[in-house]
Design a protein around this nucleic acid. Structure first.
Lengths: 190, 190
DNA sequence: CCGGGTTTTTTGTGATCACAAGTACACTCC
DNA sequence: GGAGTGTACTTGTGATCACAAAAAACCCGG
């Protein structure tokens, strides 16, 4: 989810087990769970690797993110008090630091934390789980994205999101979230 | 997914393995995959059962269905030629038969087949997989729904869907799909 | 220097086992 | 008769093994 593994990298049951100091059985379970969620792809021979997403697939997942996360943000809006907004702002500050340090994994992790923090207020666990499943599928690809974007940019749309939350502006919030989610992936496809 | 198992029913690894003539290992994998997709719930002690959904959870899943399936239908619309519409109509006829026979599982299966047939035309496998994950979570609950609805009704909104497809009416299609998806679950909550 | 066939190694699959924790049952005592 | 307790059974977990298939390495001839 955090882009620690590059797209197309292959994993082995014994390798993962060894990495975590367990036998094949728990490693198998974990890998199968992740493949069920689409985070890993299973080749015809049963070998497993992180997915290399084509442009159509990326567009689809971006559209899913937009659909689900806009709804989550919209549901979170009425419950978003000032403490939440403060917390989002501080996360945003951390994101800026990670950009300066060129730390892709930390950047992605904080970025998702920003979104998750907001969506948790929606009180919609099934929807949030769905959104996180999409994040999981995009994880390895997100790192590739990070290399392509201009590193100086602070997360512009995050400020729009915070602004819309403060103003209680629902249409503005929906647009800001949709833009934030679509933005990065658009340049990955283009 | 088809409502063959009632909500709250518990499953055991050895039981499932025996049922399919395999050992615990493949049963474990299958069960873990399903729990990863939310089709089964894992108790704190590791025991597994079909979920008993509360009203909020049902509302969430219905909202997810609406979001995703409206998008899928919308994407399928430009590619929906007459052969597809004919097929949808014949599936609709089979659904009417299942209603007469009071066959809940067959009804659910055909109903989902109706939707899947339409959505396959959207050429959006990730979205379709997401929709099917939601179906999986709702499966056991859908059967309970079937008992509550008036059995005489043929699937009314399905005709609206077909009509909108014929007319190339996108707003009408979106509304019809949203209504069809929301309708049943609304009375389950109410 | 390279390509094709063979051998060796890697890797997933399913089965079985020992173990621990949880559950259900039964028995006893008040 | 009912509640508490102890026992027996069920159940999930993690490990290990045998096996087959696939991948990789290797070797030898051109």
């Amino acid at each position: 989810m955090h882009g620690e593994i590059a797209p197309g990298q292959s994993l082995t049951l014994r390798g993962v087990g060894e990495e975590f100091g367990v036998s094949m059985t728990p490693a198998r379970e974990a890998i199968r769970r992740l493949t069920a969620e689409g985070a890993l792809t299973l080749s015809s021979s049963g070998r497993v690797s992180t997915p290399e997403l084509g442009n159509e697939r990326i567009e689809e997942l971006a559209a899913l993110r937009a659909l689900i996360e806009v709804e989550l943000a919209s549901r979170a809006l009425p419950r978003a008090h000032i403490a939440l907004i403060d917390r989002l702002q501080s996360i945003n500050g951390l994101i800026a630091e990670h950009i300066v340090r060129h730390d892709a994994v930390a950047y992605i992790r904080r970025n998702l934390e920003f979104h998750r923090t907001l969506y948790l207020r929606a009180q919609a666990p099934a929807m949030l789980a769905m959104a996180e499943t999409v994040w999981l599928q995009l994880g390895p690809t997100m790192r590739a994205l990070y290399g392509k974007l201009s590193r100086k940019d602070p997360p512009h749309y995050h400020r729009l999101i915070i602004g819309a939350l403060k103003a209680g502006d629902e249409p503005g919030l929906r647009l800001a979230v949709r833009s934030d989610v679509t933005q990065g992936l658009k340049m990955l496809v283009g």
